[in-house]
Design a protein around this nucleic acid. Structure first.
Lengths: 245, 245
DNA sequence: GGTAATTAGTGTAAAAAATGCACTAAGGGG
DNA sequence: CCCCTTAGTGCATTTTTTACACTAATTACC
């Protein structure tokens, strides 16, 4: 199909994918070291050009699966960045996505993109190539909002997990401590977890119960428009507002 | 600047702007009647191609000001739509924005875009050109979320307004009735409104007090991370969840 | 085998927020 | 002057949130 837009400015398009994982109590993001100019040697978000006949979501999925081999992953478009000078070699507009993966499932795929892929702890990350700091920032903000609004945390955990692991995940994303009893009460009251009738093994303390996420029930509640909001409880801090002045 | 991306697919890209207004108790959106193929004669969102040296937000602002003459308007990027076949004449990726304007300020600008611009009540709108139904839908959803989260409603009202007008605005956006006493309590407790010491004129009933939005105080509270959440109160409906099965 | 160390798991009371509800007040129109 | 219309106001009940400390189960170590 020859386009009729020959007189209009056209731009190259990429997708950049903020791939989140959770390991050792920390929120991680998968970055690749750039092997070419510009920004050679700097860490960057995995991304690639969108193809002629490819939908945007499909491009994001492709980037993810080329890198990790995973499909069927939580993926969401976040924001589009298109400043005139964001790429030194010409105008490139990028559509940012984030995805949530279970880090255990991740095995590096031999591919051109993935030559230098590595997980990085999100907190305290160095400067990234291009405007990827801003992209990561906006995805983090979205994830923070999402986790308070929908029970997506499960996407980042192995199929069976303990409530403490889940709490640590929430704490890592929200970056605030939560009260154990209140957290459990709230999570369990949603009835989204199924007790596996199993316990942790190989730990040097009382083993915790393992739970699974009940996706069917979740989908049902979503259909009913149920509100999953989870309010944070930054222990020992009042959230009062100055009404004076 | 000659780009280095000659080997990559490039696409034309546009911004589409969902311009919301509020009048006669209804949420409105400004649409234009297409004067050319494809979709000639259908109603569409105002939008235009982004220029070579133009940032995305700037393009959205340009579309808005060419059409309405307004600048300094609430504007937010929402989502990018880029299905391969969304435009019959070639691939066009569009970045959608929405803006909130005070409908009184709107005077149609003589411009090529605006030949056939008209306000339409959002509720019960007919089919729009291209995928503009989906674009409008996502902007509506975002507005709904925003109005519950931030006091942006004021952007749609004249500088001085009554609490009843404000309530009707919220009801129009959220599409549910609110309790008058609870709504007023909640809104006033945020201390964002200033009593103008004036009342309505020319109404055939008890005149209402006029209020102004206190933007300074709002900015202050935003800095403090204050939570403006306003929960809806769909009168006489319990929000209980089935815990069985 | 006993004890120390470590994390799991549990309930209640107080405070804050949300909800439901109905009458009086003020002005214009006839 | 009465009627109509919308403005404006408070309280009691229910629900949600918050703060908080001890016992239980297991391994490691001596």
């Amino acid at each position: 199909m020859a386009t009729n837009f020959d007189n209009y400015f056209k731009s190259a398009f990429t997708v950049d994918n903020v791939i989140f994982g959770f390991d050792e109590g920390d929120l991680k993001v998968l970055l690749i070291k750039r092997g070419e100019e510009p920004h050679i040697g700097e860490w960057a978000l995995p991304g690639y050009f969108v193809k002629t006949d490819e939908d945007l979501d499909a491009a994001a999925k492709r980037v993810l699966s080329e890198l990790t081999g995973l499909t069927n992953v939580y993926l969401e478009q976040v924001h589009t960045f298109g400043s005139v000078n964001r790429h030194a070699f010409g105008r490139v507009i990028t559509i940012s996505y984030f995805s949530l993966i279970k880090i255990d499932n991740y095995t590096i795929q031999p591919s051109s993109i993935a030559l230098q892929a590595q997980w990085h702890t999100v907190n305290g990350l160095q400067h990234l190539a291009f405007d990827h700091d801003a992209i990561l920032g906006s995805c983090l903000q979205r994830l923070k909002w999402l986790v308070k609004t929908r029970p997506v945390g499960f996407e980042l955990l192995p199929p069976k997990f303990t409530l403490t692991e889940l709490q640590h995940l929430y704490e890592a994303i929200l970056r605030c401590p939560l009260d154990k009893r209140n957290f459990r009460k709230k999570i369990l009251s949603m009835n989204l977890l199924v007790d596996c009738d199993e316990t942790q093994e190989g730990v040097a303390h009382r083993p915790a119960k393992l739970y699974k996420f009940d996706r069917k029930r979740y989908n049902k509640l979503v259909d009913q428009g149920f509100n999953f909001e989870l309010k944070e409880t930054p222990t020992k801090k009042k959230n009062t507002v100055e009404l004076s002045s």
